[in-house]
Amino acid sequence: MAIVADHLGLSWTELARELNFSVDEINQIRVENPNSLISQSFMLLKKWVTRDGKNATTDALTSVLTKINRIDIVTLLE
């Protein structure tokens, strides 16, 4: 997760939308982690794993990252 969080940057909100997080949930992550995109990205991934449990797999994440054109991160995960 740390590799993904380190590289997402501003794309974390796009990833959040693709992972079916609501606008309110995205804003809450922003408010709770106001000074760091990496912290926002990491919190998103943590919430995703908590919410989706065993369905929050590397394959699922890779699929969504591909959908938002972040092949650079997919390559890092391989």
Results as ranks from 00 to 15, higher is better:
Met1Ala: 07
Met1Trp: 14
Met1His: 05
Met1Ile: 07
Met1Arg: 08
Met1Cys: 09
Met1Val: 10
Ala2Phe: 13
Ala2Val: 10
Ala2Met: 09
Ala2Tyr: 13
Ala2Glu: 15
Ala2Trp: 15
Ala2Gln: 14
Ala2Arg: 15
Ala2Ile: 11
Ile3Pro: 06
Ile3Met: 11
Ile3Gln: 07
Val4Glu: 00
Val4Cys: 07
Val4Gln: 04
Val4Thr: 08
Ala5Gly: 07
Ala5Trp: 03
Ala5Val: 06
Ala5Thr: 03
Asp6Thr: 08
Asp6Val: 07
Asp6Arg: 10
Asp6Gln: 14
Asp6Asn: 12
His7Lys: 13
His7Arg: 12
His7Gln: 12
Leu8Lys: 04
Leu8Asn: 03
Gly9Gln: 06
Gly9Met: 08
Gly9Val: 05
Gly9Cys: 03
Leu10Thr: 12
Leu10Pro: 12
Leu10His: 15
Leu10Ala: 12
Ser11Asn: 14
Ser11Thr: 07
Ser11Glu: 07
Ser11His: 04
Trp12Asp: 02
Trp12Glu: 01
Trp12Thr: 00
Trp12Ala: 02
Trp12Tyr: 02
Trp12Asn: 03
Thr13Ile: 13
Thr13Trp: 03
Glu14Trp: 06
Glu14Phe: 06
Glu14Asp: 12
Glu14Gln: 13
Glu14Lys: 07
Glu14Tyr: 06
Leu15Lys: 02
Leu15Trp: 04
Leu15His: 03
Leu15Ile: 06
Leu15Val: 12
Ala16Gln: 03
Ala16Glu: 01
Ala16Pro: 01
Ala16Phe: 04
Ala16His: 04
Ala16Met: 00
Arg17Glu: 12
Arg17Val: 10
Arg17Leu: 12
Arg17Phe: 11
Arg17His: 09
Arg17Ser: 11
Arg17Gln: 08
Arg17Met: 12
Arg17Ala: 13
Glu18Val: 10
Glu18Ser: 04
Leu19Cys: 02
Leu19His: 04
Leu19Asp: 00
Leu19Ala: 05
Asn20Asp: 15
Asn20Ser: 11
Asn20Thr: 06
Asn20Gly: 11
Asn20Glu: 11
Asn20Tyr: 07
Phe21Ile: 04
Phe21Val: 02
Phe21Gly: 04
Phe21Asn: 05
Phe21Cys: 00
Val23Met: 11
Val23Leu: 12
Val23Asp: 07
Val23Pro: 13
Val23Arg: 13
Asp24Val: 07
Asp24Gly: 08
Glu25Leu: 02
Glu25Thr: 07
Glu25Trp: 01
Glu25Pro: 00
Ile26Gly: 00
Ile26Arg: 05
Ile26Cys: 05
Ile26Lys: 00
Ile26Ser: 02
Asn27Leu: 06
Asn27Gln: 14
Asn27Ile: 13
Asn27Trp: 07
Asn27Pro: 01
Gln28Asp: 14
Gln28Asn: 09
Gln28Ile: 06
Gln28Glu: 14
Ile29Val: 07
Ile29Asp: 02
Ile29Lys: 01
Ile29Gly: 01
Ile29Arg: 02
Ile29Leu: 06
Arg30Lys: 13
Arg30Ile: 15
Arg30Ala: 13
Val31Asn: 13
Val31Cys: 14
Val31Arg: 14
Val31Met: 09
Glu32Ala: 12
Glu32Asn: 12
Glu32Asp: 14
Glu32Trp: 02
Asn33Tyr: 09
Asn33Met: 10
Asn33Lys: 09
Asn33Asp: 06
Asn33Cys: 14
Pro34Ala: 08
Pro34Gln: 12
Pro34Val: 00
Pro34Asn: 07
Asn35Gln: 11
Asn35Glu: 11
Asn35Pro: 04
Asn35Thr: 13
Asn35Lys: 07
Ser36Met: 03
Ser36Phe: 03
Ser36Ala: 04
Ser36Gln: 07
Ser36Thr: 07
Ser36Asn: 12
Leu37Pro: 11
Leu37Gly: 06
Leu37Lys: 09
Leu37Asp: 08
Leu37Glu: 14
Ile38Trp: 12
Ser39Leu: 09
Ser39His: 11
Ser39Arg: 13
Ser39Thr: 13
Gln40Val: 01
Gln40Phe: 03
Ser41Val: 02
Ser41Gln: 01
Ser41Cys: 05
Ser41Lys: 10
Phe42Cys: 09
Phe42Val: 14
Phe42Ser: 15
Phe42Asn: 15
Phe42Arg: 15
Phe42Lys: 15
Phe42Tyr: 14
Met43Glu: 14
Met43Asp: 14
Met43Ala: 14
Met43Lys: 09
Leu44Val: 09
Leu44Gln: 03
Leu44Asp: 04
Leu44Phe: 11
Leu45Ser: 01
Leu45Lys: 00
Leu45Cys: 06
Lys46Arg: 13
Lys46Thr: 12
Lys46Gly: 07
Lys46Asn: 12
Lys47Cys: 07
Lys47Ala: 11
Lys47Val: 05
Lys47Tyr: 06
Lys47Asn: 13
Lys47Pro: 00
Trp48Ile: 02
Trp48Leu: 03
Trp48Ala: 00
Val49Arg: 14
Val49Ile: 12
Val49Glu: 15
Thr50Phe: 08
Thr50Pro: 00
Thr50Ala: 15
Thr50Met: 14
Thr50Trp: 12
Arg51Pro: 03
Arg51Gly: 05
Arg51Ser: 06
Arg51Leu: 02
Arg51Val: 02
Arg51His: 02
Asp52Gly: 04
Asp52Gln: 07
Asp52Arg: 04
Asp52Ala: 08
Asp52Trp: 01
Gly53Asp: 05
Gly53Pro: 10
Lys54Arg: 12
Lys54Trp: 09
Lys54Phe: 10
Lys54Thr: 10
Asn55Cys: 10
Asn55Gly: 14
Asn55Val: 11
Ala56Arg: 05
Ala56Gly: 04
Ala56Ser: 05
Ala56Gln: 07
Ala56Ile: 07
Thr57Ile: 03
Thr57Trp: 00
Thr57Met: 06
Thr57Lys: 03
Thr57Gly: 06
Thr58Asn: 09
Thr58Asp: 15
Thr58Trp: 10
Thr58Ile: 15
Thr58Gln: 14
Asp59Pro: 12
Asp59Phe: 05
Asp59Tyr: 08
Asp59Val: 10
Ala60Tyr: 06
Ala60Pro: 00
Ala60Gly: 08
Ala60Thr: 08
Ala60Trp: 06
Ala60Ile: 08
Leu61Thr: 00
Leu61Lys: 03
Leu61Gln: 03
Leu61Cys: 00
Leu61Ala: 03
Leu61Ile: 07
Thr62Trp: 06
Thr62Glu: 07
Thr62Asn: 06
Thr62Ala: 14
Thr62His: 07
Thr62Ser: 15
Thr62Gln: 09
Ser63Thr: 14
Ser63Ile: 08
Ser63Glu: 11
Ser63Asn: 11
Val64Arg: 07
Val64Pro: 14
Val64Ala: 11
Val64Leu: 15
Val64Lys: 07
Leu65Lys: 05
Leu65His: 00
Leu65Thr: 05
Leu65Gly: 02
Leu65Phe: 03
Leu65Asp: 15
Leu65Met: 04
Thr66Phe: 12
Thr66Asp: 06
Thr66Pro: 05
Thr66Gly: 10
Thr66Ser: 09
Thr66Met: 12
Lys67Leu: 04
Lys67Gln: 12
Lys67Met: 14
Lys67Cys: 06
Ile68Ser: 00
Ile68Arg: 00
Asn69Gln: 12
Asn69Thr: 02
Asn69Val: 01
Arg70Lys: 06
Arg70Val: 01
Arg70Gly: 00
Arg70Pro: 03
Arg70Leu: 02
Arg70Met: 03
Ile71Ala: 11
Ile71Gln: 15
Ile71Phe: 15
Asp72Gln: 03
Asp72His: 03
Asp72Val: 04
Asp72Asn: 05
Asp72Cys: 00
Asp72Met: 03
Ile73Leu: 10
Ile73Ser: 02
Ile73Thr: 01
Ile73Val: 08
Ile73Arg: 01
Ile73Phe: 01
Val74Thr: 10
Val74Gly: 04
Val74His: 01
Val74Met: 03
Val74Glu: 01
Thr75Ile: 09
Thr75Ala: 12
Thr75Lys: 15
Leu76His: 12
Leu76Trp: 05
Leu76Ile: 15
Leu76Pro: 06
Leu76Tyr: 05
Leu77Asp: 02
Leu77Tyr: 03
Leu77Arg: 01
Leu77Trp: 05
Leu77Met: 13
Leu77Gly: 04
Leu77Ser: 05
Glu78Thr: 12
Glu78Leu: 07
Glu78Phe: 10
Glu78Asn: 13
Glu78Ala: 11
Glu78Gln: 06
